[in-house]
Design a protein around this nucleic acid. Structure first.
Length: 542
RNA sequence: GCGCCCGUAGCUCAAUUGGAUAGAGCAUCAGCCUUCUAAGCUGAGGGUUAGUGGUUCGAGUCCACUCGGGCGUACCA
């Protein structure tokens, strides 16, 4: 529909040259009475042409040559909107297109040949993934899917650090639990890792080595074993959600490869760093930031900023056209420093898009399920997945705008009814599949020969909802908003369920029944495609 | 104090990124199965979009301030 209007407007430019100067927008009006698509072009032109919008709208309409077989009515409405009404015969062509393209309907080549990198999760291996990481993981993976749908070649990446203070504390936590097991008196510091998993790792070591590790260094076998075990658990948790990273990037490699020293030299020789109080400071004040920040502590250890800048430089230099970082909101104060650092070394920070993810509250009905990494009573991502299943986890985390706090209600996610949006959408798919199986018995075939018979309001509404899918995918990808896909699928499922109620297939005259079958089949394809973007299964039976 | 995010129906959230009369689900109330899954559908009530001012043809959306919540504000990551 949109493409048709674009072509028609293009031709009108000879009459009204000013049309070239504005970006044409066609959108679906909220109210059905305002037609299928509307444009505000006349309002945008009113300033340039110094005439009132409704008069300009009339001029535009006079210059447009629309085919009455495609558009049966146009009108000028409100302050100067032009509304277009498409014929019922015309809109049904989308059904043919969907059935023709099947799994690839909704995919576009908009960014074909471009490469993107999505960095997400990136939790250090100090403990099991939390539900917060889960939201990050699901949205990151789904954004990667979306980018693939619009043509990008996407690398999924996980950045981690297995050195530094956190990991030392981890090793020592295991060592203390180990000593406890072999009967030594210990005092376990409060800021050490309290979780049961530490004791389990210590127990494994005891089973394998007895008490022979009594005098071992915390950073030796204790840390190494903990890292290995925890990382393997993390990867398993992600796999349970269908998430597989292509690249695991170890911060340490930046030191080994000399990237850190290169960066330090660059800052120094360009007057962007200086020494004060035994530390090295990055002159962010020279980069339109408020204050300078330390990049090397007086102990000689770098702060997170230095490797982060080096890491982003490495990624940009791999030649990506787009880099996405999915961060927790605890990073919200730090990434601007990193972007400033990237700019300082002459790379383009505009390629980097940062998604800040807000917190998740887990509820079970009216009850808040507490989360705390330190305390014992917290729910891990694995527990969540096994409680409600992969599909619900992925759908629920994708369902809400990433930069809003969200409530994840376990009791709803577990329900097998229309209260649970995952089931509502999946059920629409299963229902269509069941119809397709059923009609075989009465020898009805899917046919696109008589689509013009689909004139019922509920048929037309369903068709127009199908029409929106391609645009919705593109919009979601461009805005990095996965929740739009959920909202869309819910609407599509609702449109289908309603159609299913009012427009029966069995017992209907053959031509109409077969056209309705084609429409049902098209809806099934689009639901499946949408769910696959989300990484949610499309069951054939429920 | 300062920075970022958020505030929309009783609850959980949308709103085509500045468009026309702010929409769904849950909950409440009233209905619909001799026919393809009632795991579904239909209808009703429910709003000063936290508040005040501003920008313009037009604001839930942009700007300023105020109030409320979250996360930061380290020579932790």
């Amino acid at each position: 529909m949109k493409n048709y209007l674009l072509t028609v407007f293009k031709k009108a430019e000879t009459d009204i040259p000013a049309l070239k100067e504005i970006t044409l927008v066609f959108e679906k009006p909220k109210l059905a009475g305002y037609g299928d698509l509307a444009t505000n072009a006349a309002m945008l032109l009113s300033k340039k042409l110094k005439d009132n919008p409704r008069a300009i709208a009339q001029q535009i309409l006079d210059s447009l040559k629309v085919d009455p077989k495609v558009i049966y009515k146009t009108e000028i409405a409100g302050p100067g909107f032009i509304n277009f009404f498409f014929t019922k015969e015309y809109v049904t062509y989308i059904i043919k297109k969907i059935i023709d393209k099947k799994d690839s309907f909704g995919k576009s080549e908009k960014y074909a040949g471009k490469r993107a990198n999505v960095e997400f999760v990136s939790a250090n291996p100090t403990g099991p993934l939390t539900v917060g990481h889960g939201r990050n993981a699901v949205v990151g993976d789904t954004v990667a899917n979306l980018l693939e749908w619009v043509g990008y070649e996407v690398d999924r990446e996980y950045y981690f650090n297995n050195a530094g203070r956190q990991m030392r504390v981890l090793g020592d936590s295991v060592r203390l639990r180990y000593l406890e097991i072999i009967g030594e008196q210990i005092s376990f510091p409060e800021d050490y890792y309290q979780g049961e998993y530490i004791k389990e790792i210590a127990m494994q070591l005891y089973i394998k080595y007895g008490d022979s590790l009594k005098n071992d260094d915390p950073e030796g076998i204790f840390k190494d074993t903990a890292e290995k075990e925890i990382f393997s658990d993390i990867k398993k948790s992600l796999e349970n959600l269908g998430i597989i990273h292509k690249i695991f990037f170890n911060e340490n490699s930046l030191y080994k490869d000399g990237k850190i020293n290169e960066l330090l030299d660059y800052f120094k020789s360009n007057g962007l760093s200086y020494e004060k109080d035994g530390a090295i400071w990055l002159k962010l004040s020279a980069l339109s930031k408020n204050e300078d920040k330390v990049i090397i502590k007086s102990t000689g250890e770098p702060t997170y900023r230095l490797p982060d800048i080096a890491y982003h430089a490495v990624k940009i230099n791999r030649g990506y056209d787009l880099l996405i970082d999915v961060f927790g909101s605890d990073h919200n104060a730090t990434y601007p420093d990193v972007l400033a650092g990237i700019k300082a070394i002459g790379l383009n920070p505009d390629k980097v898009k940062v998604m800040i993810q807000q917190f998740v509250t887990i509820m079970d009905g009216d009850e808040v399920v507490k989360m705390s990494t330190r305390k014992a009573n917290y729910i891990t991502l694995d527990e969540l997945t096994s409680e409600v299943g992969k599909d619900a986890v992925r759908y629920f985390f994708n369902m809400r705008n990433i930069n809003s706090h969200m409530v994840f209600d376990l009791s709803i996610a577990k329900k097998k009814s229309d209260e649970n949006p995952v089931f509502y959408v999946q059920y629409a798919h299963a229902r269509i599949n069941s119809i397709l199986n059923r009609v075989k018995e009465v020898q009805l075939e899917i046919s696109t020969n008589n689509l013009e018979l689909l004139v019922h309001d509920d048929e037309q509404h369903l068709i127009k909802t199908l029409f929106q899918f391609e645009e919705e995918v593109e919009l979601s990808a461009d805005s990095l908003e996965t929740h739009r896909i959920c909202t869309y699928l819910y609407e599509l499922a609702a449109a289908y369920h309603r159609f299913n109620k009012t427009c029966r297939i069995l017992g209907t005259e053959t031509k109409l029944a077969e056209a309705r079958l084609a429409l049902s089949y098209a809806a099934m394809i689009v639901i499946k495609n949408g769910l696959s973007i989300l990484g949610v299964s499309a069951p054939e039976e429920m």
